[in-house]
Design a binder for these strands. Sequence first.
RNA 1: GCGAGCGUGGCGGAAUUGGCAGACGCGCUGGACUUAGGAUCCAGUGUCCGAAAGGACGUGGGGGUUCAAGUCCCCCCGCUCGCACCA
Length: 985
Amino acid sequence: MSDSTHDTPKFRYNAAFANEIERKWQDYWEAERTFWAPNPTGLLSDVNRERAHLPKKFVLDMFPYPSGAGLHVGHPLGFIGTDVYARFMRMQGFNVLHAMGYDAFGLPAEQYAVQTGQHPAVTTEQNITTYRAQLRMLGLGHDPRRGVSTTDVGYYKWTQWIFLQVFNSWYDHSNDCARHVDELVRELDAGLRLPDDDGVPWAERDALEQRRYVDDHRLVYVGEAPVNWCPGLGTVLANEEVTADGRSERGNFPVYKRPLKQWMMRITEYSDRLIADLDQLDWPDSIKLMQRNWIGKSIGAEVDFHVVGKKGASRQGAAAEQGEPTDQDASDDTLISVFTTRPDTLFGATYMVLAPEHELVDHITPNEWPECRPEWRGIFGAHRSPSEAVSAYRDFASAKSELERTSEGKQKTGVFTGAFAVNPVNGAEIPVFIADYVLTGYGTGAIMAVPAHDARDFEFAREFVIDVVPVITPSPEWLLNHEGAIAADCATWSESFHGDGVAMNSANEGVSLNGLKVREAKAAIIEWLVGENRGAATTNYKLRDWLFSRQRYWGEPFPIVYDEHGPIAVPESMLPVTLPEISNFEPATSDDPDALPSPPLGRAEDWVEVEFDLGDGPRVYRREVNTMPQWAGSCWYYLRYLDPTNEDRFVDRETERYWGENKQEAVGAVDLYVGGVEHAVLHLLYSRFWHKVLFDLGHVSTPEPFQRLFNQGYIQAYAYTDERGMYVEASEVVERDGAFTHNGKVVNREYGKIGKSLKNVVTPNDMCDEYGADTFRMYEMFMGPLDASRPWSTRDVVGVNRYLQRLWRSCIDETSGDSRVVDADIDDDTRRVLHRTIAAITNDISVLGFNTVVARLFELNNHLTKLVEASGSAPRAVVEPLILMTSPVAPHIAEELWQRLGHTTTCAYEPFPVHDPKWLVADTVEIPVQINGKVRGKVTVASDATQATCEAAARADERVAALLVGATVRKTVVVPGRMVNFVVG
RNA sequence: GCGAGCGUGGCGGAAUUGGCAGACGCGCUGGACUUAGGAUCCAGUGUCCGAAAGGACGUGGGGGUUCAAGUCCCCCCGCUCGCACCA
């Protein structure tokens, strides 16, 4: 930008002037507390009290992590979108809560602290200050009192309090909700409830046994399960934080499954409700689908297979030599339980597979090979015994990384255990294999394999030469498409058949599925299995309990201490449990997968050992040294926004009810939640879970946190590489005749994330310096639909800047600074344009269609410009609504113009213009006249003209009439007010 | 592999949900004002044929339904995202 100083009018809207008025209005809003949203009660109710009686809108952005790099132009896209929406809703008469806090615990601050020795609290504070300054510059209408940070002691005290709520709860299946454990104990004591662990009667248990029972039922518990151990980060991670190829989402370090004692949250208790309640949310279908897939509910059956008694006369001798127990008889009773979603194909099960780590593998493996096909002994040549083959295979499988395991062309591997099991429906003795295509963690870790109707089983069966028996008749089309395939003979099949079909080969003395469709066959076989006590209908979920502990310093400490028997909650009155000061924040990281986690808090010995009186006199306890994951603080921040200063409760009940209150069909507290898709299954699932626990316990009044979710797209930018492939500074690249050059040399254009590494960073500060915040805001809104990703293009920004300049010039004399607005009449045409614009904008803002909002503003302004050119002045009846409609997008210039037009208060609460429907319809409309669907003329008719009138007018058109001469009109289609079409033949 | 979504001028993108494709903006071309223009203002700008009037073509490709298709249906191609042996 280069308005040379000597001839630029003093009151031209240029960058310097924009910056001046922007600062002025930001100061005004702060001083006047313009965006302080009143609560119904409490400390935040005194200012703007009159608005507390209005209906509410709760508008929310996803909590940013304040990184040291500050904001680039991609970050504030959603923030500006919510600000436009929030400002619009204020003008529509709502009490709008819009605030911005910080998700400030987490790895980057800690890693920076490790490198520099500076306390993470210090860098976090600096980063937040930077963020606040950058956001203030954008003119976002946040209520500053509510800008909490998860690292504030006054905040994480309540994170710990919520943890205790979860800790002190159990899931009551008979009422399908969480309840306080005291109620569980009371019911057990009173005999109203029996222990569900088939143990001794409750009354006969001692205090320690009772405590263990309760601990086992809490919604938070210490579990020892295979967890994702990431030695590179020195911490364990939740499933959601591990990528498909077995690496950490942060840092991309390898992750190993290791059995470790860790805190777990029973999110799985909520699986069904988390799925069911999605139906009532106004979320993108793609996100709902991702959540459903992640929870992964499958309905099927569990079926028990008896293992055939081990064979081989020399077996006992061999076992005795190795000092193993000889349990031949016991093996007769061994049951392998499998989960299947296709119990209707049970007659086609020709082998079984256990996961290599399955606990029964050693138990069922005999010492000598039975008679079997040589291929079954696996991929390592002939082993002398099954147990040799099994252990060799286990070594092979566990040496493979997650990536290798899934990417090796899906070549199936495995070995025969030497054991056989009996198919309960037909008595067939089928071989039992181990193979790594069966996962330990899902279902029972064992499957019945039906190669005819499952792709994986089919591949395995072909590999190992196992029988393939069809039990569903393929459709004729399928057989046709699989040349040579015959329904009854799978030997000719090239792949398994998964389609719908009727059952075949599926009958025994007690049940016949033959001729039944899949659904009916499932029901019939389950009924039979239940009757025979060989199985039952069950449901399985992919979702696992949430691994909740991390071996980090910069997180919330657990409000937990240990005595010699286990964990005990720190009483509420002793919250918060504050982080101790330590000097070395580093967890022990390592390349060694067998290294053990070692949390940094363990080194704060003075802190770890603590003396309390928990009712039985002062005793020494040891504190929990793990910290909570970053997700903990972000699970509930929207609730703290409601009542950030409350020291007695995490949120006041009445305040929560006011801001959470919703129309009958709505179930979520937040009216609009805008953020990126990357949180589809992490934050959004955890947050829904906590909210539901709080709902069950009566602490919040809605079953869901977020009613309407909107995913904003990402802004990326072009990047350029030179002939060496090195990135060059993108801002220095110029385009000439379709080629891109940097210092005269041609460079190659790429497209990617904005960041230092691609040298393509553009910051909001750059844009504000060059054009002003209003231009920047408006450009971000104009560049495309909010949910679409698109490339940043600084070159295009000038377009919206011109709009603001023209608007300014229409209203203000550039040399004198005086208003050019007059109270003149406006013509009907102008009035129509105005009201059409009002109607379109009102609709588009509510559906977050901000790009078309800006386009409509441009149109009205273009019309206004013509009026001003013609008359030398701007009619107030157009200018004022235009300013008001501009104000949500470009609030500073709107305030300035509003003031210069003679108003004395902010326009933030002026009623948004309302359209008059009568001006939406013109007296006349021009409609196209088509002949055979091609436009051949246009006629103007009264907008309420009848079919007959339209047709008559069309026929009267000279050109149309000429074309119709001599033609036979076979049909005439008239859509009144829209078009006329003559079909001639 | 499975699932979801998307393909519209040189570019970003609009199109009452079946009714004039390309709103609005960038860029480009021409002009005005200027010592100057990378400022501002005005006009033009889908492609092809044509001096023009006008015509033909046109929403990834092919087919279909319809008086009428960017929009609905079928097949194919390309891109993006999610899941990834989940039984």
